[in-house]
Computed example of a mutant assay.
Amino acid sequence: MSHYCLHTMNLTRTLIIGNSGSGKSWLAKRLADRLQAPWIDLDLIHWVSDEHSIARPRAEALGMARVAASKEHWVIEGVYDWIVSELVEQATALIWLCLEDDDCVNNIRQREAKRNEDELLMALLEWAGSYRTREGSSGFAAHQRLFDEFSGSKLQLMSQAEVTAFVTPLRETPIL
């Protein structure tokens, strides 16, 4: 499925959405490296301090995101539909990592294996486990709506195997 999509997708300005722990950063880094484009993690725009869960003022975060999206090439990834929906007009491609909630929780547990199970980690695991039922701009329904309404090149990857299969030809395909 994903092998032929790579050749038909315009990845110049790619948005990657999905649940926490779905592999957005992992994919964005590889895609940005391959495309020689900047990788923008919306967590770094949304949070002043991830360590202390201090959110940046909304207008300031949107301003920073708009500046990032004004560039010619980029890969922007994040869970925040309220930011992504502001950037979607500039995007040439949208990739939705739609893994099962349990897979996302397990990925976070693996990624944070050395970390003590503190309140922030427990909250993140609970957050990732509630993706399909979560209300608001960072849940499944918001991402489904964004994906359905996007008129450019788009791809929904449903498992880690599909994400890996999408990335594999990136290493083999010459840059156009």
Rank of each mutant, 00 (worst) to 15 (best):
T12I: 14
S22G: 06
A165Y: 06
S49N: 12
A65Y: 01
R13E: 01
V84R: 00
I175N: 07
P169R: 00
S138H: 10
K114D: 15
A69E: 12
E86S: 13
D50H: 07
S70Q: 07
R34S: 11
R58N: 04
W127Q: 08
S49G: 05
I40G: 01
E149R: 09
L6Y: 02
V84M: 05
E77F: 03
D33Y: 12
R171K: 10
V163T: 04
P57M: 11
Y80K: 04
L157H: 06
M158G: 00
M9C: 13
L35M: 14
T173G: 03
I175D: 10
D81N: 10
H52T: 15
T12V: 14
W127T: 00
M64Q: 09
F166V: 04
L125M: 08
I45A: 00
V163N: 00
L155W: 07
A91G: 14
S159Q: 08
V79H: 10
Q144S: 10
E51A: 14
D103M: 14
N116F: 01
W127N: 04
L27V: 15
E126R: 15
E51P: 00
L155D: 03
A93N: 06
D41L: 01
A165M: 11
G139A: 09
C104T: 03
A65S: 07
A32D: 13
D41T: 01
D33I: 05
